[in-house]
Design a protein around this nucleic acid. Structure first.
Lengths: 233, 233
DNA sequence: GCGTCATTTCGACCCGGAGCGAAACGTGAG
DNA sequence: CTCACGTTTCGCTCCGGGTCGAAATGACGC
């Protein structure tokens, strides 16, 4: 039955060490087996065993690279799922009141290759409010989100992102919306969102912290976010 | 770290018996401890232990009812998450080619309280194609989906569903879209979708099979689906 | 070829937890 | 009150799997 699928995936997620490895990989960057072993505080052999299970389960994919092996999350779909699991609201969990330490840590973070967290939500809202995105009805079977002319203009003139060029060199969807309807917190994903985060990192608006998923906003970033998105950090 | 949340939830899902119990509960109806024990083929004491863990994890909620105790999925959000986990495409899993036995079994099924599966997708597509739903921009902080006048008219005239009355007696969102962007398969959820499925069951368009999640389309249903939604089963 | 280094495989240990039956608890019926 | 029945708790067994160190494998550089 379908239940066995759930338990199989659940088993893969059940171990704290594997979950820590996945959390590290959720930054979107690949890591070697040794890096992950050190990061999670276990022996290399232990991490090797865990990574084997994660690969078998289909959550993680591995590429040979000389004498190293690079592990990464298998797909954006998997990354999205893991983020959703990480954020789902479990009613009975006595809600450990995470506003205190949680606010700063979760204000901005990366989800695979795009910006999520509160900052991701605010960027999304700006795109919607200013009419830079619209529901794409052109193809009846493709209820996606597409960039408006105004959105395209903003990206090229203000940020120097050439969406047309991006489309030619990347086959993935240009723009998606990762949605959490129950929380009414959406953020942008897809190639454009990935490019946007890359730019923010390269231009040093954002910096990765030691925990690779957490992003901090620099002084430059505060100014730029206010200038371009009217976001006050 | 956030990883521990994932592993906690993973542990709750890791056991096949617990997964089977969750699958049974995903039909949206409540079940007693004994029913679930028989359905999953384990002793009552074993199921009691599993249900205790599921309640502790926040996935399941329980209500005392005389000398019975009714267990149900904790929230729609949890049901949505479980459905997503159940359907996520794990690349390396050697994709067991599910079209053969999967097609019939998954054509129509219930997800908590609304119709999902291929039929759910087709109903959603009809609502979109005919302009019965639209992106709700009225409240800038509420990027939901709302029924258009045409949609409201269809529901009341063709099916006798009074959306205004529904809104007064139910505080939950009238309409949501459960989205799987990567698969481009969306289906309708929310109070209206729940009411729609209830009507289809009462009017015997659909019938629950022994596996409570699976729905079969009756002859009446085929005619009605063709008439109202132009869906050929 | 040989040493080095990252990684995986093997063997041994041990703890968590899934399973059952029996007994205890709680509620409803007579 | 007492019995019947659904459910939970307890005590127990047993298996799976997470952990490590040691040894084997595979690549690179000299």
């Amino acid at each position: 039955m379908s239940g066995s699928r759930i338990s199989t995936l659940g088993s893969a997620l059940a171990d704290p060490t594997r979950a820590a490895a996945l959390a590290a990989l959720l930054s979107g960057t690949a890591h070697t087996s040794g890096e992950l072993a050190r990061a999670c505080g276990v022996a290399a052999s232990t991490m090797s065993s865990h990574l084997g299970k994660l690969v078998d389960s289909g959550l993680v994919r591995v590429e040979a690279a000389g004498r190293y092996r690079h592990y990464r999350i298998a797909s954006r779909e998997v990354a999205d799922l893991l983020e959703r699991i990480d954020e789902v609201d479990l009613p009975e969990t006595a809600t450990p009141r995470r506003p205190s330490p949680g606010r700063d840590l979760s204000y901005a973070r990366s989800c695979y290759d795009h910006v999520a967290g509160q900052l991701g939500v605010e960027i999304h809202d700006t795109f919607v409010d200013r009419g830079w995105v619209e529901l794409d009805e052109s193809d009846p079977n493709h209820h996606g989100v597409s960039l408006t002319d105004a959105g395209d203009r903003f990206l090229s003139q203000a940020l120097g992102i050439d969406v047309a060029a991006l489309a030619t060199r990347s086959r993935r969807p240009m723009l998606r919306i990762d949605i959490d309807w129950t929380e009414r917190r959406n953020h942008l994903a897809g190639a454009v969102a990935a490019e946007l985060m890359t730019l923010m990192l390269e231009e040093k608006w954002l910096r990765r912290r030691t925990d690779k998923r957490v992003l901090t906003v620099s002084e430059t970033g505060k100014a730029k976010l206010a200038e371009h998105f009217d976001i006050r950090v």
